[in-house]
């Protein structure tokens, strides 16, 4: 397991490096003045421009700037927001928690529902159910996530008035501490559902296929030869092994959820990173925009790494470094 972990880590580090480099060159590619690209269209005083030029070493050659940029990034210095002259890192840190509440809820939700539906469809011999799951999965991949959010707001908040449509907490609520939980949950329900929708479809489909496949494997026949009932076989020998590919999919798709949260937060006025990103785009506050995307990319690399490690934990073959099949 130790060697496995080391190997995965060794894989992740250059990837992070690559992402940062990509961001750097993207900035260089911006049309016109690099300062303008960095500070966007925000009106800036000449002193401020001089200050930024100095700070970013924009009068230096490309490679030197690259080196400086790397140093900044790895000291978590993401620059300053031009709108508020606040460090970007602070701005993001303020919002990160809210985004995590939303995305982690969505991911958990997707995992539970997706696995349940997938196993159900996989063990059932009903073709109709199979088609239904496939249909819903393809549908959820084709639907614009933010529009689905709009429709749910339209139905549940505007027409039926049963759920709130905006924000994390009701403005009128006076509750404190844990008492705010019910209020939070009602606000969380719709955005988390929308965010989970796509992953539910993806996970359900993978698990379904995987259950189908595992059911034909020889060791399932061994279990049958032991005299076990179908239910026992499914519970003990099929489900667990069918979940292996789901682990990968759920983990690797965290990036989709994170990126999707930008859209969903905008629809639901959820005060997270996505909303910050939306504002930064509107204000052409590029330092913030880049900071957030960089963070998303880093989060993906880290979550992928964790996924590999979890996979190693649940699949003894990988752990041993045998590297034998099983991964989709």
């Amino acid at each position: 397991m130790l060697r496995f972990t080391a190997r995965r880590l060794l894989h992740a580090v250059p990837l992070l490096f690559g992402v940062v480099t990509l961001m750097f060159f993207l900035l260089q590619l911006a049309p016109g003045d690099p300062i303008q690209a960095l500070i966007g269209d925000y009106p800036a005083t000449p002193e401020y421009i001089a200050q930024v030029t100095e700070a970013y070493g924009l009068d230096q050659p490309l490679l030197v700037r690259y080196w400086e940029y790397l140093q900044q990034i790895f000291t978590l210095n993401l620059g300053e927001s031009l709108a508020g002259r606040v460090p970007v890192a602070d701005l993001i840190a303020d919002r990160l928690g809210n985004t995590l509440i939303l995305t982690v809820t969505a991911m958990t939700f997707a995992a539970i529902v997706g696995v349940a539906v997938g196993v159900w469809a996989g063990v059932s011999r009903s073709r109709t159910l199979d088609h239904l799951v496939t249909g819903v999965a393809v549908g959820s991949l084709s639907i614009p996530m933010f529009w689905l959010g709009q429709m749910l707001v339209l139905i549940f908040a505007i027409k039926l008035s049963v759920l709130p449509s905006q924000g994390m907490y009701s403005t009128r609520s006076t509750a404190e501490g844990l008492d705010r939980l019910p209020d939070l949950l009602t606000h969380l329900l719709l955005p988390a559902l929308v965010l989970a929708m796509r992953e539910i479809g993806v996970v359900a489909r993978i698990v379904r296929t995987s259950v189908h496949d595992v059911l034909t494997l020889p060791y399932v026949e061994t279990a049958r030869a032991k005299g076990f009932s179908r239910a026992t076989i499914i519970r003990r020998h099929v489900v667990r092994n069918s979940l292996l590919p789901a682990v990968t999919v759920i983990g690797y798709n965290f990036g989709f959820i994170l990126a999707g949260s930008v859209l969903v937060e905008t629809v639901f006025g959820w005060p997270g990173m996505g909303q910050l990103l939306y504002e930064s785009i509107r204000n052409r506050d590029n330092a913030v925009t880049i900071g957030i995307v960089l963070l998303i990319a880093v989060a993906v690399v880290v979550v992928n790494l964790l996924t590999d490690l979890v996979y190693g934990l649940v699949d003894p073959r990988i752990r041993a470094g045998a590297g034998a099949g099983g991964r989709a």
Binding site: L217, P218, Y219, E221, T222, A223, A225, H237, R240, N241, L244, V314, D315, P316, R317, G326
Partner: peptide, 15 residues
């Protein structure tokens, strides 16, 4: 009781 050939495939890899 039955014993088959190809024991690797006949055993559950995660148990």
């Amino acid at each position: 009781a039955m014993v088959f050939q190809d024991a690797l495939a006949r055993l559950n890899p995660t148990m």
